[in-house]
Amino acid sequence: MSVNGMQRSEETATRNGIQALEMAFSGVLKCRQDVETTKTNLMTHYKGSDGAAFTSLVTSWEEKADVILTNVQDMIETLNQTLVEQGKQQGSSNDAINQAYSQSDSIFDELTSGSR
């Protein structure tokens, strides 16, 4: 394989990695939002110590999901930077990813402020 062929192969692999990470990000974000919606709906009816334990468990899971989302976003940005350094076009839209993440934060804030 020529050097140019190897570079195209590496670029394709990098772009495939970005696409896979974007899909993972979207999946985790959707799950996180579904869990938040379920938690909010159940909190109105789920009282007492078992309700508090449930809320604590879900909150802990959400915090872990946020760490995963941040790490996946960092990996996407790193791969995008790799493409930029290789003189290739941007592999994905960081703005779109940041917007989705911000939207999840605002939805979370809105839901939690309404449940207090």
Rank of each mutant, 00 (worst) to 15 (best):
M1R: 10
S2C: 03
S2K: 06
S2L: 11
S2H: 10
N4F: 12
G5H: 10
Q7C: 12
R8D: 10
S9A: 08
S9I: 09
E11G: 13
T12H: 12
T14Q: 06
T14W: 02
T14H: 11
R15P: 07
N16P: 03
N16H: 04
G17K: 12
G17D: 02
A20H: 00
L21K: 14
L21S: 09
E22G: 08
M23G: 00
M23L: 15
M23K: 14
A24Y: 01
A24N: 03
A24R: 12
F25V: 09
F25N: 14
F25H: 15
S26I: 00
G27K: 05
G27D: 10
V28A: 06
V28N: 04
K30G: 12
K30H: 10
C31P: 00
C31R: 14
D34E: 14
V35P: 00
E36R: 06
E36Y: 00
T37D: 10
T37E: 08
T37M: 11
T38G: 01
T38M: 03
K39T: 06
T40Q: 04
N41D: 07
L42N: 06
M43L: 04
T44R: 13
H45W: 09
Y46Q: 02
S49D: 12
G51D: 03
A53M: 04
F54I: 01
F54C: 04
F54V: 00
T55M: 08
T59L: 12
T59H: 11
S60W: 09
E62S: 12
E63F: 10
K64E: 14
A65N: 03
A65H: 05
A65W: 01
D66V: 04
D66W: 11
I68H: 05
I68Q: 13
T70W: 02
T70E: 08
T70D: 00
V72N: 11
Q73D: 04
I76F: 10
I76E: 09
I76R: 13
T78D: 09
T78K: 11
L79N: 08
N80E: 00
N80W: 04
Q81Y: 08
T82G: 13
T82I: 03
V84M: 08
E85T: 08
E85P: 01
E85W: 03
Q86G: 10
Q86Y: 05
Q86K: 15
G87S: 02
K88L: 05
K88E: 15
Q89E: 15
Q89H: 06
Q89C: 06
Q90L: 10
S93C: 08
S93V: 05
D95P: 02
I97L: 07
I97F: 02
I97H: 07
I97W: 06
Q99C: 13
Q99G: 04
A100G: 02
S102P: 05
S104E: 04
D105I: 05
D105Y: 14
S106Q: 08
S106E: 15
I107A: 12
I107G: 03
I107V: 12
F108V: 01
D109E: 09
E110A: 14
E110S: 13
L111P: 00
L111W: 08
S113I: 12
S113D: 09
G114I: 03
S115G: 01
S115V: 12
S115Y: 14
S115C: 07
S115N: 12
R116Q: 11
R116T: 15
R116H: 14
